[in-house]
Design a protein around this nucleic acid. Structure first.
Lengths: 105, 105
DNA sequence: TTACATTCTTCTACATTGTAGAAATACTTG
DNA sequence: CAAGTATTTCTACAATGTAGAAGAATGTAA
């Protein structure tokens, strides 16, 4: 098992936060609103595809019943290995932060 | 100002943890011991060089007074912009983690 | 004073991740 | 069927991650 990149972490976290409503557009929006970080849609989708290739997330196509037209959504959720990789990555950073709180705020 | 990569974060944190004793070998060791994460020396030095190029850390050569031979050390410390970039990066991830503690442990 | 061991850094090269604009797809409504 | 809308996929390149090998500077022993 290896470590997630910085943006991969944000995408994984967004997926987990969004639960049943995690797809490209909302993932991007969640990152923007919560992390205050901009990302293009292309960046998000590329990362989603790579995470899925690595087996860290899985996807399924949503119902074709849209409200105002538009292509059907592709939903994502974290897999067990995906959650494990995320935990491990966060844990490594957190361990390094311990003791530096006074400096880092 | 932009964001630090996953390994860049660890290197920056190691430098701050080590204070006046931060150089290639100890940085690698600190990451290994605290974050439980292996990294080659080449990986560490490459990252240090790039961080310095971006102005996020600064360096100086240590005294030539070594105990048991060997080349003199190159010490590093975080710059003000470097600390700011680190803080911002950590803050973004932390904001995304809020509320997921039950799941992430 | 010259080998040699030691400690540390730099070089070289390639793989993975980050990034975004443009193009394509699929669905709804007029 | 044309047009508008929401969403995804494609294409391309830049930045970061990774490590092995080579090089450089110092102390020590013959």
């Amino acid at each position: 098992m290896d470590y997630l990149g910085e943006f991969e972490q944000l995408v994984m976290l967004a997926i987990m936060r969004l639960g049943a409503n995690a797809y490209g557009m909302t993932i991007r929006q969640e990152i923007k609103e919560v992390a205050k970080r901009n990302a293009s849609l292309g960046a998000v989708y590329t990362t989603l595809e790579r995470l899925e290739d690595k087996g860290l997330i899985s996807s399924w196509i949503g119902e074709a019943t849209e409200e105002r037209g538009g292509r059907s959504k592709k939903y994502f959720k974290a897999t067990i290995p995906g959650e494990a990789a995320l935990k491990q990555t966060l844990k490594a950073t957190e361990a390094m932060v311990v003791g530096l709180e006074p400096v880092l705020g």
